[in-house]
Design a protein around this nucleic acid. Structure first.
Lengths: 252, 252
DNA sequence: GAGATTAGTTGACAAAAATCAAAATAACCA
DNA sequence: TGGTTATTTTGATTTTTGTCAACTAATCTC
C-alpha cells in the first residue's frame, strides 16, 4: 500500500516526522505514528483525522492571533515562521522543511503566536490537535514521541538563543549554513549544494543581523574560498573550514 | 488538609504551576493537577510519585548530559539554566522561580541539555516523567495542561529570540526588568522593589550582552530616574517610562 | 520582452557594544 | 573581624555591526 523510504535509525531523532512515501491522503498521522512502531490497524484508525492543504509561495498557513485547531506537518516545500510585536518589531523564528511540525507554540494560548508563510509552494498535513491528544492517550509511544518533538523544539530554540546571544555575524552565518546543509542532507539532498529559499533579509532577521551584514559575510566566505555564492545558490567548498568558523573563536 | 492561596484566574495562565500552600510532602503533582480541576481522590492517587529536594546556593539541580528521569517544579528559591557548547561558549537560557517547571528540554534526548544551578537556596519537587505521562493518560485535563506548559516554554523562547535578535542593550534590560517585575508581582511580591538573585554577568549572558554593558544600562536608567539601583536591589520608580524604553524605538 | 519592482552587493561613515584597564564596593571565609 | 576574593562601576579605546547611499542583478507583471 505504501513504501517507507529507508532511513537509518539515527535520523529518526533528527527529523520531526519521518517521511514515508505514501499514496494515502491522510498522510501526517501515519508519519507521526509509524516511527513509533504502530501496526497497520492502529494507523488505520487514525487515517480519518488528517487533511492535506496546499499553500502557494507567499501565502499564509496561519496568522498570529488566529484560533488554534491543528498542528501542521510539512509534506513538501519550505516555510518560515515569524513573531511580531505591537511596535512593529518582528523576527523570523524558524525555517521549516519537509517533515517538520508547525504550530506547537499555539497550544499554550489556543491561538497562533506567529505567522507561518510559505517561501515556496508547499504542502502540509493538518492534524487536529484535540484528535492527536485523544489518540495518543491510547498509544503511549505516540504520546512520548509527541513530547519529544515539543522538547526538541525547546532545545532548538535554546541553540538559537546561544547563537543570538554569543556569536558574531560570521559565526552565525556559518552555523546557519551548516544547519541547512545537515537538514538538506538528512532529506536526501546534497549537503554541499543547495538553494536558499529565503532572502538575505529573512536570513538576517533569523540571525539577528541586517541584510547588509549577511551579504558581507557571504562575500567574505566566498573570498576565503569556503563557499561559492551565486545569488540564492550556495556551494560549500570547504565544510571543515566552515565548521572552524564556529569553533575557533575563543569565547569566554 | 491544605489551603490554596487565592489566585485570580488570569494568573493561571501565567504561572507554570499554580502554588498551593500544602503540608503534604508530595507537593508538585498536587500543584500540577489542582488547577486543572481534579478532585481530592484523583490527587491522592498521584501523591506517591513526587519527592522534595533541596539545593543550596551554587549547587546543581542537574548537569547537562545526565540521564533524564524527572521534571522539577520549583517550590521556592531561584535557579538559572545554562547551555554550554564544546568550545566553551555558554549562555544562560532562563531564570526560574517558584512555580516554574524545569527539565522540559531533556525529554527530547533522555538527557539534560543544560545545567540547572541554584542562585539561592532552593527547593524543588521531583516529578518522575514516566509517571506523569502515565497518569496524564487517565486525566485529559492534566495532559492538556502539561502540553500548554511545554508550548508556553516555546513561546517564551521565541520572545527571547526576538529580544536577542532585534533589541538594543537598553531595550533588553528594560524588557528583562519588566519581566522580573511581573513575575515577582504574580507571586505576591512587590512589582516595584525586588532583589536580583543573579550577577551582572549572568544578566548579560541571558541578554546577550557583556557585564559592563549591563552595568552601564543600569546606570543610565538610574541617571534618568527610571529606577534606583543599589547593587542587587532594584526599585522601579517610573514603570511607564521603563515600558517606553521598549516601545518607542521604531524598528523596521 | 520591456519596464518596474524587488533583491543583493559594496563603500563610506556612524552608532553600538566589546574590550581593556583601573578603581571602588560588596561578599565570603577563616 | 580582617583579609581575600568576587562583583560592580566607570573611562578610554577598538571592534563590530548598523545606516545610508549608490549601483547592479534578478524577478515579476502586463
Amino acid at each position: 500500500m505504501f513504501k517507507p523510504v529507508l532511513i537509518e535509525p539515527s535520523i529518526y531523532c533528527q527529523l520531526d516526522i519521518v517521511q514515508f512515501k505514501s499514496s494515502c491522503a491522510a498522510c501526517s498521522l501515519r508519519e507521526l505514528c509509524l516511527p513509533v512502531g504502530l501496526n497497520e490497524d492502529e494507523v488505520k484508525k487514525l487515517d480519518i483525522v488528517s487533511q492535506k492543504r496546499k499553500i502557494t509561495r507567499g501565502g499564509y498557513l496561519h496568522h498570529a492571533g488566529t484560533k488554534f485547531q491543528s498542528l501542521y506537518a510539512v509534506r513538501s516545500g519550505f516555510l518560515k515562521t515569524c513573531v511580531l510585536e505591537q511596535d512593529g518589531r518582528h523576527q523570523v523564528t524558524g525555517f521549516h522543511m519537509t517533515g517538520e511540525l508547525l504550530g506547537l507554540d499555539a497550544i499554550s494560548t489556543d491561538a497562533h503566536t506567529c505567522d507561518a508563510i510559505a517561501l515556496e509552494d508547499s504542502e502540509v498535513c493538518e492534524i487536529p490537535f484535540a484528535k492527536l491528544e485523544e489518540i495518543s492517550r491510547d498509544i503511549p509511544s505516540l504520546m512520548r514521541h509527541f513530547h519529544k518533538i515539543m522538547s526538541r523544539e525547546i532545545v532548538r530554540d535554546h541553540g538559537v538563543m546561544l547563537l543570538l546571544g554569543s556569536m558574531k555575524a560570521e559565526e552565525r552565518l556559518a552555523s546557519f549554513l551548516l544547519n541547512l546543509s545537515r537538514r538538506f542532507h538528512l532529506r536526501g539532498y546534497s549537503e554541499y549544494n543547495f538553494n536558499l529559499r529565503m532572502t538575505r533579509e529573512e536570513i538576517g532577521s533569523y540571525l539577528g543581523l541586517k541584510l547588509e551584514t549577511v551579504s558581507r559575510a557571504f562575500s567574505k566566505f566566498q573570498d576565503e574560498e569556503i563557499i561559492t555564492v551565486d545569488n540564492k545558490h550556495i556551494q560549500i567548498k570547504d565544510i571543515a573550514r566552515l565548521r572552524m568558523k564556529l569553533s575557533n573563536s575563543d569565547v569566554s
